[in-house]
């Protein structure tokens, strides 16, 4: 009887905590939307964040996408080579996998690690050193000053980074297909060109969802930080882990929904 009750209590606590977190996230999103539409945007701040989120993620996104495209081509090519004695469909497999899945997911994961951690750590540090309190007494609102620019920056830059990753990945696939597997250029590019617009769109919609997951999770974790440097570390780890897991889990459901809607 007793252990059952303890387990029950632990679970009700967890459920209540989760419900509370969902409620607080909803409030944060509502406030963010309110400040986006009701106050003049601080363009300088928004562009600054776009630079942080987008431009500074270029090198790591490039590397990830390039090698992902290359390994996709390599694996597909050799698998088909073994079965059909010919490296078939390399362009199609590389293109579709990147555009629909790996482009958005890997970009999301990379941005969650780089940008999500930075956002949670920066806002968390500001929280524990009373800088967030100082914002209130100096005539601005932390959601307006800290969350809105990061929100807009992620919303714009993550899909752009995804498109960029798709392009780099397809190029990487081309190098391996052409120089390693001797697939003729025209065949590879014809297969890429044959990819439907919906397939690209499928990936792009996902990348918007991932941007939202990353920016909301990390701003939320940052703003609720307490307990000094240790708390900042905890907030950062939590933000990254929750963002990455949410991206991977939601990927399945988003794919299922988008496919059932006929998008890709």
């Amino acid at each position: 009887m007793r252990p059952v009750r303890v387990v029950f209590q632990i679970y009700t606590r967890r459920v209540l905590d989760l419900a509370e977190a969902v409620g607080s996230v909803t409030v944060l999103v509502r406030k963010t939307l309110y400040w986006i539409f009701s106050a003049r945007l601080d363009a300088q701040n928004v562009f600054g964040q776009m630079y942080e989120v987008g431009v500074k993620s270029f090198p790591v996104t490039s590397l990830t996408a390039l090698f992902t495209g290359m390994v996709l081509a390599l694996q597909t090519g050799f698998s088909f080579l073994r079965v059909f004695n010919e490296p078939l469909y390399v362009g199609r497999v590389v293109g579709l996998s990147l555009l629909k899945e790996l482009g958005p997911v890997l970009t999301g994961v990379v941005v969650a690690g780089r940008v999500g951690a930075a956002i949670a750590a920066e806002i968390g540090t500001m929280k524990v050193t009373e800088q967030v309190d100082a914002l209130y007494t100096l005539g601005t609102n932390p959601v307006r000053y800290l969350v809105v620019p990061r929100f807009l920056a992620c919303l714009v830059m993550v899909p752009l980074l995804t498109i960029y990753a798709d392009v780099i990945g397809v190029l990487g696939g081309y190098f391996v297909a052409h120089f390693r597997l001797n697939v003729p250029s025209t065949i590879y590019w014809d297969e890429i060109r044959a990819i439907q617009l919906e397939d690209a769109f499928h990936g792009l919609i996902k990348s918007v969802a991932y941007a939202l997951i990353i920016v909301i999770t990390s701003c939320f974790q940052g703003l609720r930080t307490s307990g000094g440097a240790e708390g900042v570390g905890r907030a950062t780890t939590t933000a990254v882990v929750i963002s990455m897991v949410s991206i991977l889990v939601s990927d399945y459901f988003l794919s299922a929904i988008l496919v059932s809607l006929g998008i890709g």
């Binding site: 050193t129 800088q131 209130y136 007494t137 005539g139």
Partner: peptide
Amino acid sequence: EEDALALVQRKFGFLFQGGALFDS
């Protein structure tokens, strides 16, 4: 409400114990 409170908070200058300077 938050909006009304923000109007009241405008009346204050606050020196925080730790300074709370914006380090960026």
